[in-house]
């Protein structure tokens, strides 16, 4: 009879998401219904009547399923908000980078101001946008599992993974932007075009070091 109850419960929950929560709820329900059935039969009820009254006592499972689904809605709303924030921060930072290079060139070329002043302005703007990016990606909340399915676990893992990759990528691109800016700046102000290209080799080394650090971090986990 337990099997008959089980298939009835499976049928009732056919539309529910296949999650650990739902699975556990079904198990709980089946155990309790079976015990009720056994009690009714023990009291002398005919098996068929007992089965029918057990099934009738389940009631409307829609409210149960709805309750289990509610969490998903909440999470997707939060994710949407997070996504918008990321887009805003990234576009703001990129804008500031462009502005910083523009400031560097215009202060030196248009206003004929001191090179050091131009460099300070450039570093301040670039530094601020870098901090903005790093802070955002560090403080971004972990992916919140909508439920306990394998798919969700995979999503969480993937997000962890790409989060790190994103940080690595943004660091590297920041580093290269800085390298180009410093190269142009030093070359123009000091006129050492013959040697200044060496900075690109240094840049490549720093690039590799950043990647290595991220890889090592990944391996340790």
């Amino acid at each position: 009879m337990s099997n008959k109850i089980r298939s009835k419960v499976d049928l009732l929950f056919a539309d529910a998401p296949q999650t650990k929560k739902v699975f556990e709820l079904k198990e709980e329900l089946i155990v309790n219904l079976t015990e009720k059935y056994d009690d009714l039969v023990g009291l002398g009820k005919a098996p068929e009547d007992a089965y029918n009254s057990v099934i009738a006592s389940i009631g409307d499972v829609d409210e149960l399923i709805k309750g289990l689904r509610q969490n998903d809605v909440f999470n997707s709303e939060r994710e949407e908000k997070e996504r918008r924030k990321t887009a805003l921060v990234v576009s703001g930072a990129v804008g500031l980078y462009i502005l910083s290079i523009l400031a560097l060139i215009s202060i030196v070329e248009v206003f004929r101001a001191d090179g050091v002043l131009a460099l300070i302005v450039f570093l301040l703007i670039a530094g601020f946008s870098t901090c903005m990016l790093i802070y955002h990606f560090m403080s971004k909340p972990k992916y919140i599992k909508a439920d306990d399915t394998l798919v969700e676990e995979f999503k969480e893992w993937k997000q962890e993974h790409t989060k790190k990759n994103q940080l690595c990528k943004s660091l590297i691109s920041i580093m290269w932007t800085l390298t180009v800016a410093i190269y142009l700046f030093i070359s123009f102000t000091m006129g050492i075009w013959a040697y200044s290209w060496i900075i690109f080799i240094i840049g490549a080394v720093v690039d590799q070091i950043i990647r290595l650090v991220f890889d090592m971090n990944g391996m340790r986990e």
Partner: peptide, 27 residues
Amino acid sequence: SYGYEINKAIQEKTDNQYELKEATLYS
């Protein structure tokens, strides 16, 4: 306690006049 036991106690205390539906109970 567990689901069925709770419902059974409710039934006994009310002389079989009141019983929760399973869906209501688990919600």
